[in-house]
Write a protein that binds this DNA or RNA. Structure first.
Lengths: 191, 191
DNA sequence: ATACGACAGAACGCAACCGTTTCGTCGCCT
DNA sequence: AGGCGACGAAACGGTTGCGTTCTGTCGTAT
C-alpha cells in the first residue's frame, strides 16, 4: 500500500470513528484498527489526536456551496435551504458536525477551524445572494447581511439538529417564504 | 453528610464535569472525586453513567420559561429571545447543551430526554404567544406554530452556538423585528 | 446503649488507550 | 544488487476508568 492510500484510509477511518463515537471517545487505536493501519503510520503524520482531527476535517471541509441565482430572493433562499438540508441529511455530517461544535466550546483550535470553514462556505454565497436581491430592488441597500444569514440557516439547523424534526420540501417552501419576508420586513426600526 | 446533600453534590459535579469534559470523556470517578464522594454513593443511586446523566439532566431541565405578554407580537418575541439569550449565556448551559445534543445523535435515550424537555419548556409558551397575537389580529388564525418556533429560536441558537458571534441587545431587537415580519409574511403561498 | 444504614476511602482485577519502540517485510529507486 | 523508506504488527510501561468489595466512621432512630 502506498502512502497516499494509507492517508486516505486513515481519513475515512477518522470520519467513521468520529461519527460513531464522537471526538471525546474516539481513540487513535480505533482509527488505526479501522483503517487497517499501524499506529506508526498515524504518528508519522500527526503528533496528536487533535492535530489529526483538525487536519482531516479542514481538508474535507473545503467543499463550496453553489451560488443560487433563480431571479428572486425567495427562490435563491429556497435553493440555499435545499443545499443545506441535503448536506445535513448526510449521516456522517449529521453526527460529526454537532459533535465538533460541542467540542469547539472547549477547544479554541477546533472552534477556529469550524469558524473558518463556515465563513468560507457561506458568507460569500450569502453576500452575493443579498447583493443580487438589492440590485433587483427586492431589498434596501443597507440590508443587514449578518442578520439575513442567521434567519436563513438558523431555523434549518435548529430544526434538523436540535428538534430533530423532519424537513419536508413543503416545510422548506414555507421557511423560504418566511425568511424572505423577514429580510424585507426587517427595516421597521423601533418598538 | 446526609443523603440529600450527597445527591446534590453529585448533581452539581455531574454538571461541572459535563461542561468541562463533555459526556464522552466524563468519568464516574471524576464525578465522585469532584463531589467529594465515594463511588459507592453513586452506584447506590444509578446503575450507569447514562442513567445518571439522564436523571440529573432531566431533573434540572424542568425550569419553565415565563410567558411573555407585552401586548404586541414583536414585543413578546423580543422577551422570549432575551430569556433564551440569557439562558445560553450561562456557561454551564452553553457547554452542556451542545454536548448533549451531539450525544443525542447517537443515543436515543438522551435524544428523547432532550426532546421532552424542549417540548415542555417551549411549545406551550409559543402556542400561547401565537394565540395572543391571533386574538389581537396580528396573525391569521391558521398561523404555523411549528414554523414560528423555528424562526424565533433558530436564528438565536445558530448565532450563539454555531457561529459563536456576540448577541447584543440591538441584535435581538433586529432579530425580533425580522421574526415578527416572517410570521406575518409567511402567508403568501405559491411559486 | 445499641444497632443500623449511609457514608468516604482504599484497593481489587480487568480492560482500554496512551505514545513509543522494535522487528521483519515489501516496493521502489538507482 | 543493494539501500532506503514506509509499512503492519506486536510489545513496552504507564495511566485511567470500570464495577465491585472491604473497612472503619458517624449520625440517627430505637
Amino acid at each position: 500500500m502506498l502512502q497516499r492510500d494509507v492517508t486516505l484510509a486513515i481519513q475515512a477511518a477518522v470520519f467513521a470513528e468520529l461519527a460513531e463515537h464522537g471526538y471525546g471517545r474516539m481513540s487513535i487505536e480505533a482509527v488505526a484498527r479501522r483503517a487497517g493501519v499501524g499506529k506508526t503510520a498515524i504518528y508519522r503524520r500527526w503528533n496528536s489526536k487533535l492535530q489529526m482531527v483538525i487536519d482531516v476535517v479542514s481538508t474535507a471541509a473545503v467543499k463550496v456551496m453553489p451560488v443560487p441565482d433563480t431571479g428572486s430572493l425567495r427562490g435563491d433562499i429556497r435553493e440555499l435551504l435545499d443545499a443545506g438540508a441535503q448536506a445535513m441529511r448526510h449521516p456522517l455530517a449529521s453526527q460529526i458536525v454537532p459533535d465538533l461544535l460541542a467540542e469547539a466550546a472547549r477547544n479554541p483550535d477546533i472552534a477556529e477551524t469550524l469558524e473558518k470553514a463556515l465563513r468560507e462556505t457561506q458568507q460569500g454565497v450569502s453576500a452575493v445572494m443579498i447583493g443580487n436581491a438589492v440590485e433587483r430592488g427586492e431589498l434596501p441597500a443597507d440590508t443587514d447581511v449578518e442578520l439575513a444569514l442567521d434567519m436563513v440557516f438558523g431555523p434549518l439547523y435548529w430544526r434538523v439538529a436540535v428538534t430533530r424534526s423532519p424537513v419536508s420540501p413543503d416545510y422548506l417552501d414555507r421557511l423560504a417564504q418566511g425568511a424572505a419576508a423577514a429580510l424585507v420586513g426587517a427595516h421597521g426600526v423601533a418598538p
